[in-house]
Write a protein that binds this DNA or RNA. Sequence first.
DNA 1: CAAAAAGTTTAGCATTGGCTAAGTCTATTG
DNA 2: CAATAGACTTAGCCAATGCTAAACTTTTTG
Lengths: 144, 144
Amino acid sequence: MPQQAKKAGAAKIRSAAFRRVRADHQSELAEDYVELIADLIDEKGEARGSDVALRLGVANATVVKTLKRLQESGLVTQEPYRSIFLTGDGWKMAEDGRRKHKIVEAFLLALGVSEETARIDSEGIEHHVSEETLRAMARFLVRR
Amino acid sequence: MPQQAKKAGAAKIRSAAFRRVRADHQSELAEDYVELIADLIDEKGEARGSDVALRLGVANATVVKTLKRLQESGLVTQEPYRSIFLTGDGWKMAEDGRRKHKIVEAFLLALGVSEETARIDSEGIEHHVSEETLRAMARFLVRR
DNA sequence: CAAAAAGTTTAGCATTGGCTAAGTCTATTG
DNA sequence: CAATAGACTTAGCCAATGCTAAACTTTTTG
């Protein structure tokens, strides 16, 4: 194997991790939105655009634009000036996000960090943990 | 306290986590770049744009554009057609990234995940762990 | 039930981060 | 030392995600 090819091969393997992180970022926003919408529906019976904007800390117009994309991706349905609904796929994604979120947050608490830090860090981490790591965290929760 | 204000206050607290995640994303790319550049300098004596592109898995042109921004932010210095250098701030950021990366990766390994998963997940997680969580991870590594 | 308030959408702009294609510079090598 | 190969840059495109200001609906209320 020529030196050149070996070098390229090793770099390709490394770049996979970065590619994965970039891909995660794309789904991250969608997951945050559907998870939040699911929470709002469960808490208050409906999800309004302005509640989403308030909780995410972005402008209303940003929510409108993003929801349009999520609608095209088949995650939510919405009619002008009405509240937001999740599709089957949307619920599936929301449930999955909640599941991950719960495990990560409980794990961080078990590790001994404060409630506030667990809440904040789990929000960032949940989109970057593989199923394998989630299993390891769940195992730790049971056995500790 | 009126109901309205209480609601807004609670939402504001929650939105802080999302704001933080968005802010992290901004610095994330910069951290990845400087960390990689530092690694290249240490490994091969210099960091070339094409090596950065290869390892990150992006096009050369993307690297050029990003480096221009990093130069404006005072993290790297570069002259056309020459290799890339880190400023003092750049080195500081790189060292900090490496430190976090090492802790997170070692922690995941200690938790029992595979080497490959530890490598991939730590790449995504390192930008979202607070100092408090890092301390908890370091404690776990010592005491386990 | 008309006017005002609150909520939602549209329009238009900026930045980031990705790409390809084409051009330019540097280094190697015949 | 000229030609070529490789590295780098420029130009120009696109999509995503944010914003403000203005317009439009819906809801509330006097």
